[in-house]
Amino acid sequence: MIFGILVNEGPYQHQASDSAYLFAKAAIEEGHTIFRVFFYHDGVNNGTRLATPPQDDRHIPNRWSELANEHNIDLVLCVAAAQRRGMVDPDEMKRNKKDADNIAEKFRISGLGQLIEAGVQAERLITFGD
């Protein structure tokens, strides 16, 4: 089965990103495919590579990157939400003349159309949010 996942909350503040990650991991273990994880609202903050959680805590952004690396999952941050919240990839850095980018490995920034596409292409769409 092909899944699309929507994450609407940022890391650490709300359980949504943890639940989404554990769901994605379990789905993969059951032999399913994650077509895309789309991050919207404060959810885009899951894509920062500048987070430094304490050693004894889970590293939420890295955990997403690693899962995506191992299983070729498309991690997409909504561009409109990302721009408002200061999430920047190298292209956005150039386009908006910023002095740095901060996006974690395997994440990319793209339009809301990617969410609609996930809704059309995936056999199941599940939302984790507040």
């Binding site: 609202h41 409109a80 339009g111 809301l112 609609i116």
Partner: peptide, 17 residues
């Protein structure tokens, strides 16, 4: 949430669903 939901509706409208 309400505002950003509406942004999805507007973008989604182009997909002719």
């Amino acid at each position: 949430y309400a505002h950003e939901a509406l942004e999805v509706v507007l973008i989604g409208a182009a997909f002719e669903q």
